[in-house]
Amino acid sequence: METAMTLSTIGFDADDTLWQNEAFFRLTQAQFVALLADYAEQDHLEDRLLAAERRNLGHYGFGVKGFVLSMIETAIEVTEGRVPASVISELMAAGREMLRHPIELLPHAREAVEALAADHRVLLITKGDLLDQERKLAQSGLGDLFDGVEIVSDKTAKVYAAIFARHGTAPEQAMMVGNSLKSDVLPVLDVGGWGVHVPHGLTWALEHADPPQGHARFYQLADLGGLPDLVGELLRTHNR
């Protein structure tokens, strides 16, 4: 049993943890499939698009802009270069619409961050396009609650360790909360922190990973409403 536990810093993922995000990608993907229905079946288009996204992550990173470029690339490939300019134009318009979509907070997001900010350092740790993430944070109304905001190109164990160090926190004194096992939980467990998985109904295929069942520092919650109680219980249990 651990003793004299200190949990000083709690990191929150943004997209699909604090507010809706993947739903807008799915809607745009459905539009992409409809626009190219004369050239290929839905499953084939979705598979080709996912392959393009995976291939392009190292070039464009995460976010709407890389998604739009991958849709355009896929459209050119499946039509063997015959895709109409009007389709390209519609895909670009769909991307601009994604960058304008209103922020819809997920259940208990504000209450959880407010409750934990009273006694802990709370950080927003998110990946994706800088301008888009800054826009979403500003529109969410949550910005003033965070002690720090970290917008990174990817989430790895090395990145988390550097973030925690920059904020004066040892990894074992940190917790990360998010909807992605691959990005929000597993890398933090790898550096000795606590990982809390809050599943979202929609998860991008490239974010799937198996849960680390049996890991002493891994927890899963149905929603953010249970997070303050979980943190309180961990502190009570480990500091008896």
Rank of each mutant, 00 (worst) to 15 (best):
M1G: 12
M1A: 11
T3F: 10
T3C: 06
T6G: 00
L7R: 02
S8K: 11
A14Y: 00
A14I: 03
A14L: 14
D15Q: 06
D16H: 06
T17C: 11
T17N: 02
W19C: 14
Q20N: 03
N21G: 06
A23L: 10
A23M: 07
F24E: 08
L27E: 15
L27P: 00
V33S: 09
A40N: 05
E41P: 00
E41M: 03
Q42F: 01
L49M: 05
E53Y: 02
L57F: 15
L57I: 12
G58Q: 05
Y60V: 08
G63M: 05
V64F: 04
K65D: 13
G66E: 01
G66V: 03
F67V: 01
S70I: 10
T74I: 06
A75T: 00
V78F: 11
V78E: 08
T79D: 05
V83P: 05
S86C: 03
V87A: 09
V87H: 06
I88A: 02
E90W: 02
E90Y: 07
A93G: 01
A94R: 03
A94I: 09
R96V: 06
R96M: 11
L99I: 05
L99S: 11
L99H: 02
H101K: 13
P102C: 09
P107D: 04
P107S: 08
P107A: 05
P107V: 09
H108W: 09
A109M: 08
E111A: 15
V113M: 06
V113P: 01
E114P: 06
E114R: 13
E114S: 11
L116R: 05
H120S: 04
T126L: 11
L131E: 13
L131H: 08
Q133W: 00
K136L: 08
L137E: 00
Q139I: 01
S140K: 03
G141T: 04
D147S: 13
G148Q: 12
E150Q: 14
E150L: 07
E150F: 13
E150R: 12
I151F: 03
V152A: 08
S153V: 12
A157S: 14
A157C: 07
V159K: 12
A161Q: 14
A161F: 01
F164S: 04
A165K: 15
A165H: 06
A165C: 00
G168E: 11
G168D: 04
A170Q: 15
E172Q: 15
A174D: 12
M176P: 00
N179Y: 04
L181W: 08
K182C: 10
K182A: 15
S183V: 07
S183F: 02
D184F: 06
L186P: 03
P187Y: 07
G192C: 09
V196I: 15
H197F: 13
H197Y: 13
V198M: 05
V198F: 03
P199M: 11
P199V: 09
H200R: 04
T203I: 15
E207C: 09
P211S: 04
P211Q: 01
Q213T: 13
R217A: 09
F218C: 10
F218G: 05
F218H: 11
F218V: 04
Q220M: 10
L221S: 02
A222G: 15
L230I: 07
V231C: 12
L234T: 09
L235I: 15
T237N: 07
T237R: 15
T237L: 14
R240F: 01
